[in-house]
């Protein structure tokens, strides 16, 4: 089995007249975490969306295990999970139902694993409630449960600590730590530094 490895080669992305990504390069190997920082509008979200293949760069390539991801986007998507600004949750479903549908579309999830993940993020007491009644921080925790269930090599996280209390931020730190320990990799766009518990942190600063 080849080592998982992500290489990003001089990405250029234009949005209308704006040159959003100007030759972004980096690589990420097993067990590494890259923290992308930069002011608002510097292209953090665009970088994440370009790496996962939602956006199409004008120039540059994204390589997964040495192969251009455009040649087999589906395989690449099987190996990654992307968590955007907003947790992908339905207001009219309960936290547990949301998790079951969201992760279940990707891979088989046992009931026990589901409960474990909810327990892990401290969601067990309120996992039967409709998401519309939950606070922003609680929704974020449901999203983290989805992350805990995603046993895939590459995590792309957009502002994972938004709306979380101190304990919740520690939780993000330990989830990332476990992912790295498994040999996975994490690419996180953040405003606030990731919790200090994340070791081997590399930084990429995008200019405005």
């Amino acid at each position: 089995m080849p080592d998982e490895r992500l290489d990003v080669e001089s990405l250029h992305l234009w949005r209308g007249d704006r040159h959003v990504l100007r030759g972004v390069c980096f690589s990420l190997a097993s067990g590494e975490c890259l923290q992308v920082t930069g002011p608002n509008g510097s292209g953090k979200t665009s970088l994440l969306r370009t790496v996962c293949g939602l956006m199409y760069p004008e120039a540059g390539r994204v390589l997964w295990e040495g192969r251009d991801v455009r040649s087999d986007l589906r395989t690449f998507h099987c190996a990654l999970v992307y968590l955007g600004h907003e947790p992908p949750l339905k207001a009219d479903l309960s936290a547990r139902e949301n998790l079951r549908y969201w992760i279940g579309v990707r891979h088989r999830v046992g009931a026990a694993a589901l409960e474990d993940a909810l327990e892990r993020v401290g969601a067990s007491p309120w996992c039967e409630r409709l998401v519309r009644t939950l606070s922003a921080g609680q929704r974020r925790r449901v999203a983290l449960a989805g992350l805990a269930l995603s046993m895939v090599p590459l995590w792309l996280l957009d502002e994972p600590t938004t709306n979380l209390d101190t304990e919740g931020q520690q939780l993000v730190g330990s989830l990332i730590g476990e992912q790295l320990a498994r040999g996975g990799m994490v690419l996180a766009a953040v405003h606030h530094e990731l919790p200090a518990t994340v070791r081997d942190l590399r930084r990429l600063e995008l200019a405005a």
Binding site: C52, G53, L54, R74, T75, H77, C78, A79, L80, V81, Y82, G84, E86, P87, P88, K90, W102, V105, R106
Partner: peptide, 10 residues
């Protein structure tokens, strides 16, 4: 964001 997750689901 559900459509986004579907598009990235593999």
């Amino acid at each position: 964001g559900t459509l986004e997750q579907y598009a990235l689901s593999g």
